[in-house]
């Protein structure tokens, strides 16, 4: 597990900011009259696209490659999907969207750190 403060903070910033940005962008793009299914798909695409842009322009240069971009992309996708599903049902404020997005990023980071700790102990049959 990563223990160097610079990279731990970098991972946290990447996941939280991607989640928050994706949620915010999805809240602004998706209207209250949309179907929830369309909202989820659009939110997912927005999250993925934003994660790629932020990942390739900032996070790759500062913090690392796939080990930063994968959890950041997952944060963006999940946050975008959540807002895409919720926005058509009940309009979400921008602050609430950004907060939920950042928390999604934090959750994804904890999940990937845990999975990583497990997988680093077991290779061989888990690998391709």
């Amino acid at each position: 597990m990563e223990r160097r403060l610079y990279f731990v903070l970098g991972d946290l910033i990447a996941c939280a900011s991607t989640g928050a940005t994706a949620a915010l962008a999805s809240a602004l793009a998706i209207g209250s009259g949309w179907s929830a299914v369309l909202g989820v798909v659009v939110g997912m695409v927005i999250g993925m696209a934003l994660a790629l842009v932020l990942g390739l322009t900032i996070f790759l240069v500062l913090f690392g490659s796939l080990e930063v971009m994968l959890p950041a992309a997952l944060s963006g996708i999940l946050a975008g999907m959540w807002v895409g599903m919720a926005e058509p049902v009940a309009a979400i404020g921008t602050l609430q969207a950004a907060t939920v997005g950042a928390l999604t990023g934090l959750g994804v980071l904890i999940f990937t750190y845990g999975l990583n700790a497990y997988l680093r102990r077991s290779a061989g049959s888990w690998t391709s």
């Binding site: 680093r120 290779a123 690998t127 391709s128």
Partner: peptide, 12 residues
Amino acid sequence: REVRNLYLDVLK
């Protein structure tokens, strides 16, 4: 002989 995961099962 050995496969060692460094990040998930992606970097090894």
